[in-house]
Amino acid sequence: MEFIDVRDVVFGYEADEEGKENKIVLKKLSFSINKGEFVALLGHNGSGKSTLAKMFNGILQPDEGQVTVCGMNTLDEDKLLDIRKKVGLVLQNPDNQLVASIVEEDVAFGPENLGIEPKEIRKRVDDALKAVDMYEYRGHAPHKLSGGQKQRVAIAGIIAMQPDCIVLDEPTAMLDPQGRKEVMDTIVKLNKEKNITIILITHYMDEAALADRLVVLDGGKILTDGTPKEVFSNVELLKKHSLDVPQSTELAHKLSSGGFKIGDTPLDVEECVEAIDKALKKK
């Protein structure tokens, strides 16, 4: 059985007082995610990707269709706590999701809500902070940390609840390049080492390229779904829907269309260099 299953989901925000029509954000969306996968959800503003992120743990509920997590329907109020135990959500602004004024107490917030024994909470908090490399900051005040550090504390707060899946809604959008790298390294590590399913919502193509699978949304529908190589090889389609591809991919694509054939779809600089090198040697 699929871990998370999204079936024919329709969702619209209510019309505002100016009498505009309801804005339908998701239009009969269906796809599913397996355990341990690292999925990146792509799409430009208004494609419904943030709305979808809030569906996975029942913060928002579909108007039509259904979302199930391990067979539990998010429409079922009694199951919401169990669903949220399995699926954690990390938001864009790290400042707005930290509750306590000391790092370790913030990380303890989730486990405390679950009613876990104090000793076990202590252990989970320490483990979670170590997993995101923030252990030495456990006694600090969150507002004195950098953006990347705050976001890693927020991730630790979710890990401490030992979820099977973490949904991250543009976690790096407000961070500087250094912070982005820290957070992305942490996410990849969690997926590879702890086998936590990751659903990453992003509009940075180089971040998306790190995923096992890309799901591209456009206008509330799925545009394409596949491995990064498959998706990014279709440069024309993405461009047509005003989406970018990683720079290396674009370079290779331009060279290919200019007559200098490059067989593979490179996703980062190293792959690109290798592919060009290979192509040069062939000549």
């Binding site: 743990n57 959500l89 917030f109 989730g110 009613g115 104090p118 979710i158």
Partner: peptide, 17 residues
């Protein structure tokens, strides 16, 4: 939203570290 996602449901059954 973040608090709800972290299973906050009031003081009942809540423990402290």
């Amino acid at each position: 939203m973040a608090m709800e996602s972290r299973c906050y449901h009031g003081g009942d059954g809540r423990t402290r570290m």
